[in-house]
């Protein structure tokens, strides 16, 4: 509705798309905040309890609750919103010498770096395998890429990760273990682990898309014009065949960039992924809300990028 009202602002389709999405963003985030807060409040248990059952006296617990505004959901929501408006996402209840801001600031760059590397690997490997499969269907290369894709999709990351770690760090001593730095040596193994599943998916999407397009009339026309095979492939066929991959990339990138619990555990990486799981287990409400908001923002942003790219690649598509 809001978007329709803003129509008179004018501009071309693309600008309208971007503007309307940016206007929707805070509304969506506010909704996500309310839903997350409600769910986080419903998680059974008390975050101030020690799992081992040793607990402070009633008096101290009462003091703790007041300190963290946990005596009522309204007080908590109000104080959270107040500080969030100042850009402060509150203290973590589990890691009390940290704030949600500091946790996000420490984890997000690590996860983003790793995720970006993994996406690159997934794209390069996936696209190459997909193209080979499409132009030489039934060949050894196609079958082996199909095999790899099957392995990539079926094996859980804790298996691939552990195998890679034991092989390259434990036996061959090529990779470091239990430490993190922004170097290819540190990034490669976890990135490959993280890339396995999306690479396989991209390979299959590309192969299917390309196989469809390659026999279509306009590709035949391009070939008949006398264009060399690689130009037909890259300029004509791939452009359309890439669209399904593109729509897969939006959510896949959001997941990759915000970290993976399993890969972080196996490779001891100080990323953000762990908090999506542990914050819920610990009922660390501020942290739950913090990571969910970050993930949602990244997801919405990337989906917007994908839509823009869609419209750019295929002008027939009108997303507005």
């Amino acid at each position: 509705m809001l978007i329709r009202l803003l129509w008179p602002l004018g501009g071309d389709n693309m600008t309208r798309l971007i503007v309307s999405r940016l206007i929707q963003l805070p509304v969506i985030l506010a909704l996500i905040f309310v839903v997350t807060l409600t769910l986080a409040w419903w998680i059974p248990g008390n975050p101030l309890d020690q799992p081992e059952g040793k607990r402070p006296s009633k008096q101290i617990e009462e003091a703790m609750k007041r300190q963290w505004n946990m005596h009522s959901p309204w007080a908590f929501a109000a104080s959270y919103l107040q500080s969030a408006a100042r850009g402060d996402l509150g203290p973590s209840m589990q890691y009390r010498d940290q704030t949600v801001n500091s946790i996000l600031a420490a984890g997000l760059p690590v996860s983003a770096m790793l995720g970006a590397a993994a996406l690159m690997i997934a794209l390069v490997v996936g696209l190459i395998a997909g193209v080979i499969g499409a132009i030489r269907p039934g060949s050894v290369l196609d079958l082996s890429s199909l095999m790899l894709a099957l392995i990539g999709v079926s094996l859980p990351t804790f298996v691939t990760g552990s195998v890679l770690l034991v092989l390259f760090a434990g036996l061959l001593h090529w990779a470091p273990v239990g430490e993190w730095a922004y170097t290819p040596r540190h990034i490669l193994l976890p990135a490959v682990t993280l890339a396995a599943a999306p690479a396989a998916y991209i390979a299959r999407l590309t192969r299917l898309g390309l196989a469809d397009v390659i026999n279509s009339d306009y590709v035949r026309t391009a070939r008949a014009k006398g264009l060399p095979a690689h130009r037909v492939l890259v300029k004509h066929a791939m452009k359309v065949a890439f669209l399904p991959v593109l729509s897969f990339l939006g959510p896949a990138s959001a997941a990759a960039l915000t970290g993976s619990f399993v890969v972080e555990q196996v490779f001891a990486i100080p990323g953000l992924g762990e908090h999506f799981v542990r914050a819920v287990q610990n009922k660390d409400q501020s942290l739950i809300i913090g990571v969910v908001l970050v993930f949602s923002t990244v997801l919405i942003g990337l989906n917007l990028l994908v839509d823009v790219a869609y419209a750019w690649i295929d002008p027939r598509i009108d997303l507005t």
């Binding site: 430490e179 001891a268 100080p270």
Partner: peptide
């Protein structure tokens, strides 16, 4: 003090002489 949550990874780090 290194923080490694996965015990297998910690053990590998120890065996590799990193702890």
């Amino acid at each position: 003090e290194k923080i490694i949550t996965n015990p297998q990874t910690a053990l590998l780090a120890y065996r590799n002489g990193r702890a």
